[in-house]
Design a protein around this nucleic acid. Structure first.
Lengths: 136, 136
DNA sequence: GTCGAATTGGAACTAAAGTACCGATGCCAA
DNA sequence: TTGGCATCGGTACTTTAGTTCCAATTCGAC
C-alpha cells in the first residue's frame, strides 16, 4: 500500500516536473514548435509500453495452457512405474534402484514419459499425470 | 521504492539535460521544430519502459499465505508461492518470471522450502507439501 | 529507534536432470 | 519372418537444480 502511494507520488512529481520543464522550455524556445512534445511524447510513451511488453521474456511455460495429450496417453508398464515413483519424489537413481535397472534406463523412460505427456520437467509430468488421473 | 524515485528523478534530470543540450545545439537542427522528436521521443520511450515495468508488478497476487495451525512447518509468504508454482511444474526461471523476481531469489526460496520441509528434491517437496495439506 | 525475520539478489560452485543418438535383445501380431 | 514396440543400457552433451556463502534492504513488532 505504501508502495503504491509512493509510486503514484513519484509519478505525480515526475509529471509536475515535466510540466515545469515544459513551461521553462516554452519560455526558452519561444515558438519553435514545442507542441511536438504533446504529439511525439505520448506516441513514444505508448511505443515504450509496447516495446517493454515485447522485450519481456516470452515466459514459455508460465502461462502455457496445459494441452492434454489426445485423450489416450499410452504409457508402457515401466514408464508408468517410473512416473509413479517420480511423483513420490524419488531421484532417477532411487527409481533405478527401486526397479533394479540402471539410471541410464530410467533416464530413457523419463524422457519418454515427458515426451508422451508433453511435459518438459518431471514436476510438470507429475502434475499432468495427476490431471489426467493416471496417478493419484 | 527508493529505486523508483531515483529512476524518476534520473529520467527528469535526463530530460532536463537533453533540453539543455538541445538548447545549445538548436541552430544545427533548422527551425522546423522537428528535432523535438529526437529529444522527447527517447525520453518518453524510456518513461514508457519504466511505467510498463511498474504497472506489471503488483497484479500477481491470488496467493494467500496460509498460516499453518500446527505442523512445525511454517513457510513464509514467498516460500509458499514458490512451492505452489513448483507443484504446477514450473522451472525456477518460470517461477521467477511469475513472481517478478530473479532466478537467484527463487533458488534461495526453493532451498529454504526444501530445508523446511526436509525434502531433498522439489518433487519430494511437492509430495510432502501435499501430504501436509499445505498445497492441494 | 532497534532488532529479527523476510525478501531480494549475486557468485561460484556441485549435483542432478534431461537430450540426442546409438545399439542390442525379446516379444508379438500380421 | 518381419516390422513395430518395449525394455535395457551406454556415451556425450547441455541445461536445471540445488548448495553455500555472502550482503543489502525492507518490514513488522516491541
Amino acid at each position: 500500500m505504501k508502495k503504491t502511494i509512493l509510486v503514484f507520488g513519484g509519478i505525480s512529481i515526475a509529471i509536475l516536473l515535466l510540466l515545469q520543464i515544459s513551461k521553462w522550455s516554452m519560455w526558452s524556445f519561444g515558438s519553435s514548435g514545442f507542441h511536438w512534445v504533446f504529439i511525439v511524447g505520448p506516441a513514444f510513451l505508448v511505443l515504450g509500453f509496447v516495446l517493454a511488453k515485447l522485450f519481456r521474456r516470452p515466459s514459455i511455460g508460465a502461462y502455457r495452457p496445459v494441452q492434454l495429450p489426445k485423450n489416450e496417453v499410452n504409457l508402457s508398464s515401466q514408464e508408468f512405474k517410473v512416473l509413479s515413483l517420480m511423483a513420490e519424489g524419488l531421484s532417477n537413481l532411487e527409481i533405478a534402484e527401486s526397479l533394479y535397472i540402471t539410471e541410464s534406463t530410467v533416464k530413457t523412460h523419463v524422457s519418454n514419459v515427458l515426451s508422451k505427456l508433453n511435459a518438459r520437467r518431471r514436476t510438470e509430468a507429475v502434475k499432468i499425470g495427476r490431471t489426467l488421473k493416471i496417478i493419484p
